[in-house]
């Protein structure tokens, strides 16, 4: 596994070099975009991490997680990733804050945290995407998209739980 990233890097630089791309200039341009994206996220992350922190520290999150633990374990998913399942379709930055909370609570190498990471990488903020695309196309009714997307969300939670256990 440890080879994947270095090999990608090698491929990228080689391709760029052969194609005569000004590699460093391109890199700086892209990195600037990436850095700005995160910087722009800071205010929403502050708000969301504080809210989730309060919700967690008060014990409210544990109450909900424990309430759903039997159901979650029956379908084969870890109960700890429940908050992510709920928030993932709604907001990207909120799921980032939630994922962080799960990793901090369970430990980065725990099965639950790994399952949450896998789920984060294999799902999409579908409510947001639908709103944007529906707004720009003028189509109101999209039969089947939401049930399909929400199923994909749940399936990926279960599959991530199985693969990381």
């Amino acid at each position: 596994m440890i080879y994947i990233i270095p090999v990608f890097l090698l491929i990228i630089i080689t391709v760029g070099f052969i194609k005569g791309v000004p590699c460093f200039d391109s890199f700086v341009k892209g990195a600037q975009n990436g850095a700005m994206t995160i910087v722009r996220l800071v205010p929403s992350l502050i708000g969301l991490i504080v809210a989730i922190g309060v919700f967690r520290a008060s014990g409210a999150l544990d109450i909900i997680v424990e309430l759903f633990r039997p159901i979650m374990e029956k379908i084969g998913a870890s109960a700890d990733i429940l908050p992510l399942i709920m928030i993932r379709p709604v907001s990207g930055s909120a799921s980032l804050a939630t994922l962080r909370d799960i990793i901090v609570k369970c430990g980065a190498d725990s099965p639950a945290a790994r399952a949450a990471c896998v789920m984060m990488g294999s799902t999409e903020t579908i409510f947001y995407t639908m709103t944007v695309y529906a707004g720009s196309s003028g189509i109101r009714k999209m039969p089947g998209v939401l049930p399909a997307a929400l199923t994909a969300n749940l399936v990926s939670a279960v599959a991530a739980g199985l693969i990381c256990s």
Partner: peptide, 8 residues
């Protein structure tokens, strides 16, 4: 993002 920019 920088690396992907090279690819792009």
């Amino acid at each position: 993002c920088g690396l992907i920019q090279i690819l792009e």
